[in-house]
């Protein structure tokens, strides 16, 4: 039962969506299925939160390696959840002044807003910015013109790196109109439009065929790996 019901839900949901796409008479069914999907997606946030708690509480109680980070994760999760859910420090909305929780959870100056502005925003921006440092370091250590393929890759990288800045325009702006195709900014566009698009289209078609065959296996219940091992 534990496996049959999810299999049935998947098969019915999947086939309804397939029919809804091709037949206008079943469009409503597809719409309803997608609304259920969106409801489940919202519930998945609760599941995700529960899973996060389970993993980090276990790590903390076992005092496994790096358990201190788990404590920080749990504290950050708990405080943010509490502040946001209870709308702490939020003023009631002017429309409903008698209802304490009618205000916006991210009202300017509220504790949730403070956490977002001064913790979440700088932390996530910092994480993403660190990529630049690692890319520079990796380029210095790994990018070697060892063979023809590597030379082609290097040449392309130089053109794109220059073409995505004003340097590309400035370096080759002197070229006559007859040779405008060789200007770095135009070469960048050409590489992106022709080589990158060609390669990506081929990969995408391959992936799409794979997805179609995989989806059919899932809908027919041939592939059940998404249900887990069932040993837990």
């Amino acid at each position: 039962m534990k496996r049959t019901i999810p299999l049935l839900i998947t098969a019915i949901g999947g086939f309804v969506l397939v029919f809804a796409y091709f037949s206008p008479y079943t469009e409503d069914w597809g719409e309803k299925t997608m609304i259920w999907f969106d409801v489940i997606a919202a519930i998945a946030f609760v599941l995700g939160g529960g899973n996060l708690l389970k993993i980090h509480l276990k790590k903390t109680s076992d005092q496994a390696e790096g358990w201190g980070y788990s404590v920080i994760t749990l504290l950050a999760f708990g405080i943010t959840l509490l502040v946001g859910l209870l709308k702490i420090g939020v003023n009631p909305s002017p429309q409903f002044p008698h209802f304490a929780w009618s205000g916006e959870y991210r009202e300017n100056g509220s504790p949730f807003w403070w956490l977002y502005e001064f913790a979440f925003k700088p932390l996530t921006a910092t994480m993403f910015s660190m990529l630049a440092f690692y890319i520079a370091s990796a380029a210095f250590r790994a990018f070697r013109a060892k063979n023809l393929e590597a030379i082609l890759l290097l040449g392309t990288a130089f053109i794109i790196l220059l073409g995505r800045t004003f340097a590309g325009v400035w370096l080759t702006d002197w070229m006559p109109e007859a040779l405008s195709g060789l200007k770095i900014d135009n070469l960048t566009v050409y590489i992106m439009k022709v080589f990158v698009t060609t390669g990506n289209r081929a990969i995408m078609i391959g992936i799409a065929l794979g997805i179609a065959s995989m989806s059919l296996k899932v809908l027919l219940g041939v592939d059940r790996s998404y249900l887990g091992s069932g040993q837990e």
């Binding site: 890319i135 520079a136 380029a139 210095f140 250590r141 990018f143 070697r144 013109a145 290097l154 990288a157 130089f158 790196l161 220059l162 995505r164 800045t165 340097a167």
Partner: peptide, 12 residues
């Protein structure tokens, strides 16, 4: 970007 190009050139 110029720095990355310079680093690659020096490394090569």
């Amino acid at each position: 970007h110029l720095l990355i190009i310079l680093l690659i050139v020096v490394a090569n």
